[in-house]
Design a binder for these strands. Structure first.
Lengths: 350, 350
DNA sequence: CATAGAACTTATAACGTTACAAATATTAGA
DNA sequence: TCTAATATTTGTAACGTTATAAGTTCTATG
């Protein structure tokens, strides 16, 4: 006689618990459960307590798809990341920071890759059109950033890493690149350098302006020579920078001081000069911007100015949350101060 | 004879178009529209064509929340990323690769940060419990990886970057670290190095075994000295590695050859040795594993063995898609070959 | 003790999609 | 021409949640 094997649905019920489950267990209506879970004050406190306790017990987890379908809220923050390598681990740090800010909230972090050289509008439009997030964070703003305009027009919450020059305001976190460049010039001059070169980002970015201004101001003020290489930017391929540095190192016009707003350009230049037989500390010096975890930790003798990108991520996350909670509230705007911690040096070095 | 007027909604309707919109425009039932959009052969080809044409015209985009609520499918692939910096731009490259593989499909990429030092099970459990994705990709497997076991038990589609040693099979992409280590030893020996040191990852990772085995095999074969530093791993802080290198460089037992399966350890060691007055190419040599875009491009004289992480991402993406389409299909397993391209060197260098 | 108001609960409908079963239209075969 | 089979379309219900409006019960006040 064939025996039908008993369906052993283990101790725990097979189907995942919903509000309906809780409603059946408590004898309440689903609506009441829903509102109790939202901690609606119109529901008796005793009920709210009872419901949340049972929810906890049976491991109830709200269905995000259903919530989203009903409310239109995705509970997702989208971080648009382009894989430039100006600062090593820029992406990692920013992700870590935003994720940290979102911990404890019911928001999820979604990282959308922005392909280098691709249309920066594309991911933004995609997210807005497909309702993929409730808020957007992006970086590398331009003075009149199309994305900012688009998101404003659609009243879509966002925060940026970097400033714009629109008449209206929006929430942002930026780094004081002007000060970075200014202080860098002074430091190099202090080391006796006169021909100081700065590697700038492509000129359509906002921080191009800031770096350039700080640099020029210090150069003029100190009566130094300005040197901005043609055809080389922060986004140039490393080999291109390397090759450029190697070639210029042997010429009359070779700079003896470099401002590198990112580790990669520094590495490329230092190597190029070395190939040409020139050593850092002897023939040239450099000030490098890096995030806390990298370069200056392995070479304490590098003149480093820090940009705390993880902290920027945290600020961006919390600011965006604020903006989403009260869309008409004040705009949170932070400009991070450069972390200057130069190693001591003997100004009369032999 | 009364003719049903086609609903002419104003030029641009204000509300976003749904299947209902299309149904009203065509006079079809919503069900028919739904099935036509799925290209169901039971629907007349003419109808399918008409529907898809209109859908295109009015910019219809299926509501993912509704689809998910109904079907249980999220159409999301989750990439779990831990922010180690063994290889610079590991994260960026992997993201770029997976995103590339997903292009053209209707799957979205979702990057879940795995906090360094956090429980590796946590993000996996979170995703499975909350139904946050249809498939998972994660890296840095362990021989008997809990995540693999968990996902298998839940019949949840996944692919890994790295192998495991379970009896059963699963889809993965891995790098031939054994060969990398082996070839690295040979290269260093070829350069006259005898005390060859390797920086290994923490020993619970699968690729610890592979690296270690390849290294040991070559060391034994060539009758060289093995040197594995205590307390230093690929995940050690850069300052710790730097400090260790600086100190050992001055001692009797200082290695003269280094195998660095990642750029950061190389940078730290090279700087440590330099601080101690020892130069690469003179007092020691190193073989570095890096992904295509970084180190060896700015210093062509570094002995580099490449790991194409972007390509790994592409494979992971496509393999996972395959696995999800046919859960009982064969497991795709790829082991990437190290890209060895040493610069020429004069073996009798003066 | 009646009653207004507060406190609390609930039924209904809807978000947009798709699975299922049922209905209708079309074609082929006798 | 009628029937059977096939091709195509449709109505209904449901996924899990929440907003709205409509209940119900309780409490305080006169």
């Amino acid at each position: 006689m064939p025996v039908r094997k008993p369906q052993i649905s283990s101790a725990h019920s097979v189907t995942k618990p919903t509000q309906k489950t809780i409603a059946e267990m408590t004898g309440l209506a689903v609506t009441t459960v829903s509102r109790a879970l939202q901690d609606d004050k119109k529901i008796a406190q005793a009920t709210r307590l009872r419901v949340s306790k049972i929810a906890e017990e049976i491991g109830y987890i709200p269905d995000r798809a259903a919530q989203r379908l009903r409310t239109g809220k995705t509970k997702v923050i989208s971080l648009i990341l382009d894989p430039h390598n100006e600062i090593l681990s820029f992406g990692n740090s920013l992700i870590a920071g935003v994720a940290h800010a979102l911990m404890g909230t019911d928001y999820h972090l979604n990282v959308t890759p922005q392909f280098l050289g691709g249309d920066p509008m594309e991911p933004v439009e995609h997210i807005v059109r497909n309702q993929l997030a409730d808020g957007i964070i992006f970086s590398r703003t331009r003075p009149f950033d199309e994305r900012v305009r688009f998101l404003r027009e659609h009243s879509f919450p966002f925060t940026t890493h970097g400033r714009t020059e629109f008449g209206y305001q929006h929430s942002f976190v930026d780094y004081d690149n002007e000060k970075f460049a200014y202080e860098s010039v002074l430091r190099l001059m202090q080391k006796g350098r006169r021909r100081i070169c700065i590697i700038l980002p492509p000129d359509h970015f906002s921080f191009y302006q800031h770096l350039n201004y700080g640099y020029k101001r210090a150069i003029r003020q100190e009566g130094l020579e300005s040197y901005i290489p043609e055809g080389i930017s922060l986004d140039s391929d490393m080999p291109a920078v390397f090759e450029w540095a190697r070639q210029i190192a042997g010429t009359e016009e070779a700079p003896d001081g470099f401002i590198c707003p990112g580790e990669t350009s520094f590495l490329a230049i230092a190597n190029g000069y070395r190939q040409a037989g020139k050593e850092r500390g002897v023939d040239f010096d450099a000030v490098v911007k890096s995030s806390s975890q990298t370069l200056h930790q392995i070479d304490p003798h590098i003149d480093n100015i820090g940009e705390d990108i993880r902290q920027a991520g945290i600020l961006l996350g919390t600011n965006l949350l604020k903006t989403m909670q009260q869309p008409d509230g004040p705009f949170e705007q932070t400009i991070q101060d450069p972390d200057i911690s130069f190693p001591p040096f003997d100004s009369f070095q032999g």
